[in-house]
């Protein structure tokens, strides 16, 4: 446990050791503001709800989170420090947990910094704070799922760009699975159970219900098991191809 904590601290500090972290946070906040205020025109709508704000998150995460995750293992591979790290008395599970949690907390910080949007809707009316809290929780969980895909892809290669692209592609598949257009394309020939199966693995399907303020156990379990599943795959990849 203390090893996970040490790795967690090192990684989190690592984010802030370079300007990249600040650039990331600024871009995240800027895009959030741009989409929420300029594109979705939250002011003009005059609704005291963060619906339109959360709507953009699956798309923002699509590019930003693979960028946060790409370095986690790829950099260890490139510099060879993976050999140092994994010959210390630390298990692969502990190492993955430390890195994942550091990245997740980092994204959580960026998410927390969007609080002015909450203040805005409070100014616009009387928002349901419960719904907003659930929305934030859902968004954070979904970010974890994106991250787990990112960290797994990062373990595959020593090239950060490759890891970024792989993660974006897989995350995109997880988004698209819930899209009406995509589902209609399947509709013509796929049986109903398959349609349900495809729709049920989509980030959108699960995020939308959380976003409405419904904290359904099934959705939480979906994201949690997705995270654990991808982290498990990450462990397998590291075990199998440590030295390449």
């Amino acid at each position: 446990m203390s090893n996970t904590w040490s790795i967690f601290k090192r990684e989190l500090k690592g984010y802030f050791a370079t300007p990249v972290a600040y650039v990331f946070i600024v871009i995240f906040l800027f895009l959030n503001g741009l989409f929420t205020f300029q594109v979705s025109r939250i002011f003009e709508r005059g609704q005291a709800s963060l619906d339109v704000f959360f709507n953009w998150h699956p798309w923002l995460y699509l590019f930003l989170i693979p960028a946060v995750a790409m370095r986690l293992w790829a950099e260890e591979r490139r510099s060879g420090t993976i050999e140092l790290l994994l010959t210390l008395p630390v298990s692969v599970v502990q190492a993955i947990a430390g890195k994942f949690l550091a990245a997740w907390i980092f994204v959580g910080m960026a998410l927390a910094l969007t609080f002015p949007t909450v203040l805005t809707v409070m100014y616009l009316g009387q928002p349901d704070m419960g719904i907003i809290a659930v929305g934030y929780l859902g968004s954070f969980l979904m970010a974890g799922a994106y991250l787990s895909i990112g960290i797994c892809m990062s373990a595959l290669t020593k090239n950060q760009v490759v890891s970024f692209i792989l993660a974006v592609v897989i995350c995109l598949l997880f988004i698209l699975a819930g899209f009406d257009v995509v589902l209609e394309a399947f509709n013509a020939w796929a049986p109903a159970w398959m349609m349900d199966a495809i729709a049920s693995v989509s980030f959108l399907t699960h995020f939308q219900s959380i976003q409405r303020g419904v904290l359904d156990l099934a959705d939480m379990v979906f994201f949690a098991s997705l995270i654990l599943g991808w982290l498990y795959a990450c462990g397998l990849i590291l075990d199998i191809k440590k030295a390449q």
Binding site: N3, R10, G14, L84
Partner: peptide
């Protein structure tokens, strides 16, 4: 001889010492 290049000498050694328990 892989080492974490972004850390200071002391920072790196302290990290390894922590990892050593």
């Amino acid at each position: 001889n892989p080492v974490y290049g972004d850390m200071t000498t002391i920072g790196f050694l302290r990290f390894i010492a922590e990892m050593r328990g």
